[in-house]
Amino acid sequence: MDIPISKEELKPFLQRSDAKAWWIVVSAWLGIAGIFIGAALLPHWSTYLAAVFLLAGRQQALAAIMHETGHKTLFKTRSYNKFVCKWLSSPFLLMDGETYIKCHLKHHRKAGTDQDPDLKNYKDYPVTKKSLIRKFARDFLGITGLKANLYLLLSGRDLLSREQRVNNQLARGVFVNFIMFAVLWISGFPHLYALWVAAYLTVYMAIIRMRQIAEHAGVKDLYDLAPKYNTRSLPRGILGLLFVSPTDGLSYHCEHHAFMAVPTYNLRALHQLLKSRGYYDDIESTNSYLGVLKQALR
């Protein structure tokens, strides 16, 4: 079945907005600042634990911003995409947006085939409940994060693409993270930077896994070229807002694969149009991330 939308109908969804894009970036950083302020005002282990989870969600927001700016679809002004990708998102995750997008574009070209470079992340699903619990346990205990970052530091390669790191990639990441630490130190709360590190090594790794599962694991046919069969779209709900899909539209991954040039803040409306025209009638859809986990289990 062809995707039921014409080129003329698609044009409004392709429109980009600097105002909407800056709001996504600013709101992510306001969230980070607010979490640190809350932890400073309420110094208690329970507050710190909540902060670790919430900061991991904001780290996912930065990853989503890196993804969108890498595609050059977030901002209408091209130079804003490059600046935000290079300085306000990817380096805080010790990544480089340009290196990431080269590998990611291959994923787009090869999705639905055995040549997909990301296939290893979801090809074995569905899995047993015990297997899934073990995977998330490794994430929450920091085992996945420590292994991944040891690879990053010792291999000289990028964390996701496994390609050789570009010049100054790691140095830029260390620099911007030092700036964050310095701001907290000047504010009188240098110890709070440990929350950022803890979030990155633990909960953020679990969020990455959940995102991979939600986007491609346990779908109708991982080896079909049609986006509606090899990927998944769903409403983000409260779990998405806080953790897995913190930027508007990120959870509509099928539309992103079908029309890569559509900015994230237009994907939800595009999804609703396609759904109203019966595009998903032969798909067993789910409306929550808990539902996704059920589809990822044997």
Rank of each mutant, 00 (worst) to 15 (best):
58 R>L: 05
35 I>F: 03
73 T>F: 02
40 A>K: 13
36 F>C: 06
66 M>H: 08
72 K>L: 12
38 G>W: 15
58 R>N: 10
60 Q>D: 07
35 I>Q: 00
41 L>G: 12
38 G>P: 07
39 A>D: 06
49 L>D: 08
79 S>W: 14
40 A>Q: 09
70 G>I: 04
54 L>M: 13
37 I>M: 13
59 Q>L: 08
71 H>P: 04
50 A>E: 10
70 G>A: 07
43 P>N: 11
72 K>G: 07
56 A>F: 06
53 F>E: 04
52 V>L: 09
48 Y>L: 11
59 Q>A: 05
35 I>E: 01
80 Y>R: 14
38 G>Q: 12
61 A>C: 04
79 S>D: 13
47 T>M: 09
46 S>I: 14
44 H>M: 10
79 S>G: 10
69 T>F: 02
66 M>L: 12
74 L>A: 04
71 H>K: 07
47 T>P: 04
63 A>N: 07
48 Y>M: 09
83 F>Q: 09
61 A>R: 03
52 V>A: 00
49 L>H: 11
77 T>A: 13
45 W>L: 11
48 Y>V: 09
41 L>Q: 15
67 H>L: 01
36 F>H: 07
40 A>L: 11
75 F>V: 04
50 A>F: 09
36 F>L: 07
76 K>D: 10
46 S>L: 14
81 N>S: 13
79 S>K: 15
46 S>P: 08
75 F>Y: 12
68 E>K: 05
41 L>F: 12
65 I>D: 02
63 A>W: 05
50 A>M: 08
83 F>G: 11
41 L>C: 11
65 I>C: 00
66 M>I: 08
50 A>P: 04
52 V>N: 01
65 I>S: 01
53 F>D: 03
41 L>R: 15
80 Y>H: 15
70 G>R: 00
45 W>S: 15
35 I>L: 07
39 A>C: 12
56 A>D: 00
53 F>A: 12
68 E>A: 07
76 K>R: 14
75 F>P: 00
54 L>I: 09
51 A>M: 08
43 P>Q: 11
43 P>H: 13
52 V>D: 02
44 H>W: 15
43 P>Y: 13
46 S>Y: 14
54 L>T: 02
83 F>H: 09
63 A>G: 10
78 R>H: 13
58 R>K: 14
64 A>W: 00
35 I>C: 02
47 T>Q: 05
70 G>Q: 01
56 A>R: 03
39 A>Q: 06
74 L>C: 02
54 L>K: 03
50 A>N: 10
38 G>I: 14
59 Q>R: 05
42 L>N: 14
82 K>Y: 12
52 V>G: 01
47 T>V: 06
61 A>V: 01
80 Y>Q: 12
64 A>E: 11
76 K>W: 10
74 L>H: 04
69 T>W: 03
35 I>N: 04
35 I>Y: 05
82 K>G: 10
79 S>N: 11
39 A>K: 05
49 L>K: 13
83 F>Y: 15
45 W>Q: 12
72 K>M: 10
68 E>L: 06
56 A>Y: 02
47 T>I: 08
56 A>H: 05
46 S>K: 11
62 L>G: 02
49 L>A: 15
80 Y>L: 12
70 G>W: 02
55 L>H: 01
53 F>V: 08
40 A>Y: 11
55 L>W: 02
36 F>K: 03
67 H>K: 07
71 H>E: 00
58 R>D: 03
